[in-house]
């Protein structure tokens, strides 16, 4: 579904991604882990071109999205993204946050978008928050709203950029539970996270990145139990 070929990204002279070749198949749940500064967030942000790659190609559903001729706005409709800082729109109510893009892009009528939003809100148990504003919500609630805001577009893949890193510890669970639910339903997911238990439980494959390269990729069992690369062994010994 997503293929990157020799993906490179530099900020000035600093090479953040040094040629990433990765393939993400439909239905896979790929977790990307690595030390800070390893380029994992940049890699994820390149996938929907929030960062423009310096070199290399990204193919999504058979289309080269790094090609200047492809319509990135159309492609982004099919790639949901969840941010570390939630990035809900503070001037809009929860309902408006969810329905804004589907309505503005003409994908749904107002009624369709609203009934879809209510359905999603019901699913996460926040129906009564539809008319609240983001600042009235807890961090966990904000992030779950952010997730269903992305889901309201009916994306084919969901990208998660450290979705629990800005949360208070007691709220991490509710967000991870929702993500695990999505995974169970067959959503294709790419998740950058530090939550090792989540990776172990949900991932179908784990990528370990260091200094702009994927140094190891494996199934969760092999990844945690038999790490081969010395950098990964060192990383795991520090965090486990």
């Amino acid at each position: 579904m997503i293929v990157t070929k020799k993906l490179k990204k530099a900020f000035g002279d600093h090479m953040v991604l040094c040629g990433i070749d990765a393939t993400i198949e439909k239905g896979e749940k790929v977790v990307v882990i690595g030390p800070s500064g390893s380029g994992k967030s940049t890699f994820l942000r390149c996938l929907n071109l929030l960062e423009t790659p310096t070199d290399g190609e990204i193919w999504f559903e058979g289309v080269n999205i790094t090609d200047k001729k492809s319509d990135i706005n159309k492609i982004r409709c099919k790639m949901g993204m969840v941010f570390q800082q939630f990035n809900l729109f503070p001037h809009l109510s929860v309902l408006e946050n969810i329905t804004l893009a589907p309505i503005q892009l003409g994908l749904m009528t107002k009624q369709q978008a609203e009934s879809k939003a209510h359905e999603l809100l019901q699913r996460i148990g926040l129906t009564e928050k539809a008319d609240s504003y983001p600042n009235q919500l807890s961090g966990g609630q904000k992030q779950r709203i952010a997730i269903i805001r992305a889901l309201a577009m009916n994306p084919d893949v969901m990208l998660f950029d450290e979705p629990t890193s800005a949360l208070d510890p007691e709220m991490v669970g509710e967000v991870l539970d929702l993500m695990a639910q999505l995974a169970d339903e067959g959503m294709t997911m790419v998740v950058v996270t530090h939550e090792m238990r989540f990776a172990k439980k949900v991932a179908t494959r784990i990528l370990f990145m260091d200094e702009g390269m994927i140094v190891e990729e494996n199934t969760p069992e092999a990844f945690f139990d038999h790490p081969t690369h010395p950098r990964l062994q060192e990383f795991l010994s520090k965090i486990l």
Binding site: N48, L50, N73, K74, R76, C77, M79, G80, M81, F83, Q85, N87, L88, F89, P90, H91, L100, A101, Q104, L105, R149, A150, M153
Partner: peptide
Amino acid sequence: DRGQMEAGRSLGLNYLQTMKLIILPQAVR
């Protein structure tokens, strides 16, 4: 915050739509 533009763009809105619907209303406030 830069994240507001990124969130708008990640939902498939183009630059001007995001500016008009998300950035400017907050800026004016």
